[in-house]
Amino acid sequence: MNATTDGPLTVLSTTSDRSKSAGMTRGSRGSRILRSLLRAACGTVASVAVLAALGAVYETVAGSTDASIYPPAGRLVDVGGYRMHLDCRGKGSPTVVMDAGLGGSSLDWTLVQADAASTTRVCSYDRAGMGWSDASPLPRTPGHIADELHTLLNNAGVHGPYVLVGHSLAGKNIRMFASTYPDEVAGMVLVDARSEYVDALTPKAEADAFRAALEMQGILYGLARHLGVARALGASLVGAPLVPPAVATEMALLQTRSAAIDETTKEGLARSADDPALTGFSLGSIPLVVIAAGASTAGIPNWANAQNELVALSTQGKLVVAEQSGHAVQLEDPGVVLDAIDDVVSMVRADH
């Protein structure tokens, strides 16, 4: 009995010790793995922190010379307590005035302005808060933007008649200009322009997603600028291979200024504010060329129909499809935009 009893007890005791030993071994191995993972994580965090700090220092040092390295190509004009940038080149009438799309600046017309200015006067400008222009206290609706442009041109002594050229969302800006100052507009070119026709058919979920994406873009642009990424990788971030790398970097730096980020967000959120005023407004018989990007007509619902609706705004409306281009036609296929401007300018001169 005792021996039998002692036997099992001995065996149980031996088994328990082995379990404890195995458990301790597994526990030790697990602890080592955990410590290794923690060290790796800490090392990664430390590396990221160091890179972020170096990027911030790089941006601070390099940014201190931006004013001398990247001066405005044109002049700064007071428009009522704040200044806006206007770059006019060439001579002749009518005067072509170009407005960039959402988030863009006067540099968006780099591949167009010089050639267009060989036959007439051509002006590009920066909306308030964009490019070299100061921020504005006014709401960022197409109507207010059109009024600011009118004040800018008047204060700068640049008088009509105007041929207005607008890319993307700026198509609404220049149409509001034509609505408010019809006697000063002689022609128009809409470059893959957004319209109220598309807005009216945009589902709420898609509009909400756009709002969220716009706000997230602002956060990412701010980080890219603060950490020096926009400066270091600017040319590749812009994604416009026809644009010289130095100019593309300058475009990225202008687009990631804090004022530009704020302006872009505000303009994007107010993009439909004046749709009721635009709906049904006719351009009469002024020469009009509507350029539709092939990628947009193929990939965006209702875009092709909307471009045809824009053509119908004038009895002299004409549609041109840039088959091989993405949305930024002026940067991807500038010849199409140049031809359109030349056509409208020629028609305006023939009419006068």
Rank of each mutant, 00 (worst) to 15 (best):
S105G: 12
R29S: 08
V96R: 02
M24Q: 11
S16F: 13
G55H: 02
R89N: 07
A46T: 09
A114S: 04
A53N: 02
T110E: 00
R18Q: 11
L37Y: 12
A40S: 09
G74R: 09
T15N: 13
G101A: 08
P72D: 09
S106N: 05
G80K: 00
R89W: 10
G101N: 08
A116K: 09
C88D: 04
R35H: 13
S28I: 14
G55A: 06
S106I: 04
W109V: 01
D99Q: 14
D17M: 14
I69A: 05
R32H: 12
E59A: 13
A116V: 12
L37P: 07
M98D: 03
Q113F: 01
S47M: 06
L38E: 14
L38Y: 13
T14M: 15
V61G: 03
G104K: 11
T65V: 06
I69M: 04
C88G: 09
A52I: 06
S47H: 02
A49V: 06
K20R: 13
D115Y: 08
G81E: 01
L76F: 15
R32M: 13
A22N: 00
G80W: 00
A22E: 02
V57D: 10
T110S: 00
K91V: 07
K91W: 06
G90R: 01
R26N: 07
A100I: 12
M24C: 12
E59Y: 09
V61E: 03
S16T: 13
L111D: 00
P94S: 05
D87S: 02
L102A: 15
Q113C: 03
C88H: 06
T65E: 03
T119Q: 07
L76K: 15
L37V: 13
V45P: 01
C42D: 14
R39K: 15
T65F: 02
R29A: 10
